[in-house]
Structures are given as structure tokens and as C-alpha cells.
Amino acid sequence: MAKEEEKRKIRYAMLVDLRRCVGCQSCSVACKSENEVPLSKFRTWVKIIEKGRYPDVSRQFLPALCNNCENPICNRNCPVHATYIRPDGIVMVNMHRCIGCMYCMASCPYDVRYVNPLRKIVQKCFWCAHRVDAGLLPACVETCLGRALIFGDINDPNSEISQVLATNAVVRLKPELGTDPHVFYIAADADAMDPTKGIDIDKIRFMEPY
């Protein structure tokens, strides 16, 4: 019994407090720097929109990153188990296993995966698992200017993320798909969360997959 309690399951999650986000993109660049993300690809970035009519206009931000879902479709659909889920909930891609079929990318409802054009494997945000294992926070969380990003163990009632989650209304992206995403947003703007708002869907430029 003692052992069990000691091994209380950790479930990491990310919380984005958009009241504190300033849209500075330092998370985007921190991630590029930390994980050697090549040009043209992003693991995390901040979507910035402007909404309203002059003079009642506001800017809204939405940092996007892998949701490290509890029931990820990418994991379900990966034919070779290259995508796997760590016990602490982080969804990982095994670089030696990945065959680059890109089916996980097509499956991901958040479009946060990409093929690394240099290494030709699929990569994505994994909450800097190498840093987390060393007891550090993910690079984006560390550098966030407004401390809008909170990362931690939601199974630990004393963690900051648990406390903030307990006292604030949060939303998630596309929870209706049953993926159980683990990136929570406080005060996210509905229009920023809507991928089809504010763009001409017929004129979007798409990138080559790699």
C-alpha cells in the first residue's frame, strides 16, 4: 500500500491563462531553440487575431501546442507504435520507429504535428519531456513573459496548476472529439479557437508536408 501511494500517478498538463498572455511569441522561439525545430515548422506558436469593429476592437491570442491527449487519435492510428504515451501522460514519438507515413498528422484534430524536413520523421511538442525528466519546466513555460503558461501535475492537489484549475473556468480545444486534450485555456476567445474564422478558406496557402 505504501508503495502505491508513493507511486501516485503523475499526469502532466498545461494551462494557458490567456488573461496573462501578451502575444510575445517567446514561447515559439524558445521551443525552436530548445528542440531544434527547423524553419517552416512550429511545435508551439501564438495565433493572434483582431476582433470587433472600430473603435471597439481587441486582440486575442491563442497559444497552440500539442494537447498531449488522454485518448490521442494519433496514437490510435500510428501503425508502428512510434507514437506512444508515457505514464505521465506525455505523448511521444519514437524517432527510430517512425516511418513517416504522416497518418498521425492527418489524424490529429489540432494539426500540431509536422515532419522534420531534415530528419524525415514526425515530431511534435512533447512538453520538453527531457527537461521535465530533469526536473525543469518546459522551455516555453520557463520563458513565458506573462507567466501565462502553467505546467504541472494535475493529480497533485497542491500543484499550482491544480489550484488554478480548481478556481477558474477553463476550456479545451475540440473536446467533443473525445480525445480528452490536456491543454486547458482560461479565458480563451471563441473566435480565436475557431480555425475557420477570419480567413478566406479558399485562399489559404498550405505548406508542403516536408
Binding site: N35, H130, R131, V132, D133, A134, G135, L136, L137, V141, E142, F151, G152, D153, D156, N158, S159, E160
Partner: peptide, 16 residues
């Protein structure tokens, strides 16, 4: 330690 068991920000970098 309000944060004692949590992950720590800053000042360190670990090789991937």
C-alpha cells in the same frame, strides 16, 4: 514549500 515538489523554472538546460 508551496512549489517544492513542482518543476523548476530557469537557469538550467539539459541535453536532449
Amino acid at each position: 514549500f508551496a512549489n517544492a515538489m513542482e518543476l523548476l523554472p530557469g537557469g538550467k538546460e539539459v541535453s536532449r
